[in-house]
Write a protein that binds this DNA or RNA. Structure first.
Lengths: 212, 212
DNA sequence: AGCAAACGATACAGGTCTGTATCGATGAAC
DNA sequence: GTTCATCGATACAGACCTGTATCGTTTGCT
């Protein structure tokens, strides 16, 4: 292995073991054995184990969000369909045999204090994913893209949590059906704004679901 | 402290620390210091740390499901309202200052192998909660109580996961509004078709969804 | 009161953890 | 081919982990 690849290889190995066994349960000795490097090498790339965790989460954060973007954008050009396609991406992730739950939720679950850097990294990932949902909801011309994004996000998290226990893709498919049902009741401004008048009274039908 | 109370006190202390710091991060030494007992005493009540974890989860499982039952059944007699009241119970749990996420999800997140006794205990709790949802959905005369229970369960899990990051009750209120919206589209067989018109406004009070 | 079981306190065993120190080998750049 | 940072291997430090052994004291029960 080329030396320039070692850091990435360490992060990949770390992510695999964190996913399999968790963060506390994954020791440095196991990690270097699996990666096939010396302990000296590991600590030359990362000062502490926490630094390794943070770097691994950062890597996975960028990877997974980029993968989701590519998956969604290659599937369809329709913004509404793209919002639904995020569930298909999630289902593919969950159906992976190596799936053991969201590693960011696990990271937050093992580092529960809000000021913990690991917790903050996990929290940041969730915010960025939510921002992408909002971006899609906005492109799909939903009247309240933020609320739509929150709903999609909640369905994603619920499906992921349940799939972590059942180890099947069914909860994700169910969450997509729920999303379809919910989004069908939501107000969208038409793609030709000139054809419509002021979109003010459209809000009335949407306010059923959302009190706040 | 009376000797008959020691075991329960140990379990309560363990649950508090597991909730605060997680399972691996909670050491035996810290536990006995917090509980104010000797290490000998702990190991006289529980053979291993895993046994302690399993006993603690079992205790919390029974406690929390009993609490939910009491909360829900004292709030209303209408089965449909009871299904929605589970979200109010969840919101109360989440708004607790000590809330750090579902301890059963955390347990499964730190013991990821499906054959791990801790994972199985967490999984069992989730199945029992789901069974209660189905019981409520059946009483509410939904045509497909199993699917309704799955939907409610998914909303619960999603709200809990997001609340674990945001540390607010808002995701739970949102999930309740989503439940209201979804359940309104579901088919229910009427219990007394003639008397139904009189008790019709029970449905109206359901729109308190995001009230608190 | 007396007795057996459970308690607290503490020392300790054996393992594992993170992180460092040492040193010979390797490999890329010049 | 020489140089020098990086590598592998390994020993080690110091802390923490679970679990046990020992022993004097206390408690609950008869």
């Amino acid at each position: 292995m080329r030396r320039s690849e070692i850091r990435g290889h360490l992060l990949d190995t770390a992510l695999r073991l964190f996913n399999l066994h968790g963060y506390h349960a994954t020791g440095i000795d196991l990690l270097i054995a699996e990666a096939g490097v010396a302990k000296t090498t590991l600590y030359r790339h990362f000062e502490t184990k926490e630094d390794l965790i943070l770097a691994a989460l950062e890597r996975r954060d960028e990877e997974s969000r980029a993968e989701m973007r590519i998956f969604v954008e290659q599937r369809t050009n329709d913004p509404y369909e793209r919002l639904l396609a995020t569930f298909d991406f999630l289902e593919a992730s969950v159906r992976d045999k190596q799936f053991r739950g969201c590693i960011f939720m696990s990271a937050a679950g093992e580092h529960k204090e809000a000021v913990d850097p690991v917790f903050r990294a996990a929290s940041m990932h969730k915010r960025l994913v939510l921002a992408y949902f909002e971006e899609l909801a906005h492109a799909a011309r939903f009247a309240e893209p933020k609320r739509i994004a929150d709903a999609v996000n909640l369905l994603h998290e619920g499906a992921t949590a349940i799939a972590q226990m059942t180890r099947t893709g069914e909860p994700v498919r169910q969450s997509k059906r729920m999303a379809v049902s919910l989004l069908a009741q939501e107000v969208r401004s038409s793609s030709e704004p000139s054809a419509r008048t002021e979109s003010g009274e459209q809000r009335a039908t949407a306010s059923n679901a959302g009190g706040a």
